[in-house]
Design a protein around this nucleic acid. Structure first.
Lengths: 107, 107
DNA sequence: CCCAACGTACATCGAATATCGAATATCGTC
DNA sequence: GACGATATTCGATATTCGATGTACGTTGGG
């Protein structure tokens, strides 16, 4: 775990990259857990993939600017980036609202 | 031009597929033109790709359930699918609103 | 009927993705 | 400092995607 997880600057967050990050079932599943705006650890995203694949999806979400990764010892806490939500309020709040409405935690 | 352009049934429209369709600059560009809820022909989407590539993107948008293709002679008129917008109002209206706000017609 | 125009389907190519397993780096503890 | 736990990275592979060119089917006009 690099001590600096490379969160992109808010100015570098692009709409197409955000949507791309949303365009995958596993990542939507992860986001449906993050919808409550709280911090979560990896065990709570019960996606049926291996640890390295989960890291891959986490990286895409983080590099898109959607999530923030905070390290507590060896554990990682993930949450939504509120600044990005504020930067693209319509798109992202709408997406999260749709996720909650669709019960994406079981599809 | 198959006389039946294969629009997916509304029940088959999935959120991840919709977001995937939104996760590309060329397709966002197309959608930014369609934002006005009117019908448009292919010439109006000034994306810098060849005809076959444009067809490819159109197919992805259509198969995601975002657009409707109506044929008038040899010409094709494309518009947003209002039923899909109504099915995922938060996600899609939010996305279109963000597109309009971001002036995506020049990025 | 023949022909041009238009949009698409198909095959292709290079690049990017998703997935896994193994190896590596970091942290906390002993 | 060594060890175990955790997360990431790396290597490899199969799949998918974006882009192009060519060929095909439809439409409309001579």
């Amino acid at each position: 775990m690099p001590r600096q997880p490379e969160h992109p600057d808010l100015d570098d967050v692009r709409l197409d990259r955000l949507f791309f990050a949303l365009g995958d079932r596993a990542r939507l599943r992860i986001l449906s857990v993050l919808c409550d705006r709280a911090e979560h650890s990896r065990e709570e995203f019960d996606v049926a993939v291996g640890p390295s694949t989960l890291s891959h999806h986490m990286k895409i979400l983080r590099e898109a600017g959607l999530t923030r990764h905070r390290y507590e010892g060896t554990h990682c806490r993930i949450s939504l980036r509120t600044d990005t939500l504020a930067r693209f309020p319509a798109a992202l709040n709408g997406a999260l609202e749709a996720l909650a409405a669709e019960q994406y935690d079981e599809a």
